[in-house]
Amino acid sequence: MENLNLFIRSIFIDNMIFAYFLGMCSFLAVSKNVKTALGLGIAVTFMLVITLPINYLLETYILKAGALAWLGEEYANIDISFLSLIMFIAVIASMTQLVEMAVEKYSPSLYASLGIFLPLIAVNCAILGGSLFMQQRDFGSVWTAICAGGGWVLGWLLAIVAIAAIRERVTSYSNVPKPLRGIGITFIITALMGIAFMSFLGIKF
């Protein structure tokens, strides 16, 4: 039950885009139409759900202060958490490369539709951000971490698909002032959506 709460909270209240601005670059660059936005969203979801548990296990059993206790007494007070940034990004980058190769080999049709997005994912802040928030909040178990991560990334998916749909309409139906066309109006739309999402803040489960 607690995990479900966390999951829903992560989708709406702690929304990656509107509350933390993570993954903005690809959010702005790849939201011109709904189809590609959905493709990128699914690819990001997939990567975060894979990398977050791995990073959680790394954090709990290797990086955290005292995490190496399972090796024996003399390792109990080693703290190598300063290495966590490098470890996390290495996991993410290599998983991206691995998944890219696996998808290319076993499912060429999926590769054709996701292919261009996969390299982008390694530098998507939402994924590294997910791992860093996980580290900050000290989740109790790997399931909690997966629930929170799933929520974050679904919130991201929701946001990118929604903004892509709005942008499609805005570019074809409205008369935006010239200097604001393209990226300017996208910022304003995102801000308005962010304010709308803030209305979820009061929800308590």
Binding site: F187, T190, L192, I195, M198
Partner: peptide, 15 residues
């Protein structure tokens, strides 16, 4: 609040 950062950036872009 976070969304206002976006509006300020949008204004800079506009100018």
């Amino acid at each position: 609040l976070p969304p206002m950062a976006l509006i300020v950036v949008a204004c800079i872009i506009w100018v």
